[in-house]
């Protein structure tokens, strides 16, 4: 009897799984032939801001391509390109990207859009950096030893932060007030909110979190140094096997043409200002 029941239980599980499977198949199967897969490695900010949730379905629909978006830091996304593990990349670390172009790991790299980095910090502003330019603000934070929260994950934002410290000839690593989270922008912002630290962030991610951290505000913005430029590129199919060249190429074209209209408007409704700005070549 008990064995029967066990078998019965297993059967029930099986049926559950089967129904789940068939449901999924229904939704996946389109009217046309099987869509082909394309892996897009990108930075967290494009996903966390919700931009890709708008763009990707349009692209998928139009070209019958199934996009697998892997949202990681720019450092990891570029490393995936360098290993041929992705077909297309959408990242924001121009200097690091240029290295991949030079080594012919990626081809067809095009400028897509920009927004800007800002320094966010607690309202009471212990290091008094409000309204300063970036270099002076970093200098001031360094000297006062006010808490600064860094991504510490080799992402585009982290690379930008490091280039700013380097330009100011400062080395904060190992300092007691310098916290490295090793996490995405969202989690890092939240941590800086809790610890009341300064943080370098892209504007898009900050705006989507601003509601959760009312005691934090934008203290430094508008400096030319703080431009955050996004490029799209495809991985070189001559160098690696199994690259979906066709889909990646279509994606690059899509981003610099059709997507532009959407990028221009994105965020207006929710935040009253665009999160990204058109910036094609």
């Amino acid at each position: 009897m008990k064995i029967n029941r066990k078998i019965f239980a297993l059967m029930t599980l099986f049926i559950l799984i089967m129904t789940a499977c068939s449901n999924e198949n229904e939704s996946v199967e389109g009217p046309t032939n099987e869509p082909q897969d394309m892996i897009l490695a990108t930075t967290t900010s494009t996903q966390d801001s919700g931009l890709l949730d708008v763009l990707i379905p349009i692209f998928e629909e139009k070209y019958n391509i199934n996009v697998k978006t892997i949202a990681v830091g720019t450092g990891q996304a570029l490393a995936m390109g360098e290993r041929g593990e992705a077909d297309a990349l959408l990242t924001h670390a121009p200097t690091a990207e240029e290295k991949l172009v030079a080594s012919e790991d990626v081809i067809n790299r095009k400028r897509v859009m920009y927004n800007d980095f800002i320094i966010v910090g607690p309202e009471r502003d212990p290091a008094e950096i409000q309204g300063m330019d970036v270099a002076a603000a970093f200098q001031q934070i360094f000297e006062t030893g006010a808490i600064f929260v860094s991504r510490g994950d080799d992402s585009g934002t982290h690379k930008m932060e490091w280039s700013l410290w380097e330009k100011a000839s400062l080395d904060p690593s190992g300092e007691e007030w310098y916290l490295e989270t090793g996490q995405g922008m969202g989690s890092t912002l939240q941590l800086s909110g809790e610890r009341e630290g300064y943080v370098l962030t892209d504007r898009a991610t900050y705006l989507s979190h601003a509601g959760n951290m009312e005691h934090m505000e934008i203290l430094v913005e508008g400096d030319d140094e703080l431009l955050n430029i996004y490029h799209v590129m495809q991985v070189n199919d001559r160098k690696y096997e199994r690259i979906n060249r066709e889909a990646a190429n279509l994606f690059v074209e899509f981003m610099v043409e059709e997507a532009q209209e959407i990028i221009k408007e994105f965020g207006m409704e929710e935040y009253g200002q665009p999160l990204f700005f058109q910036y094609t070549e």
Binding site: S27, D48, T69, G184, G186, S208
Partner: peptide, 19 residues
């Protein structure tokens, strides 16, 4: 991946990082 490999635990991590 949205609509593909997103499961409850991974989407929780993502929603937290989105705030």
């Amino acid at each position: 991946i949205r609509g593909d490999t997103r499961i409850l635990t991974t989407s929780m991590v993502m929603e937290v990082s989105k705030g």
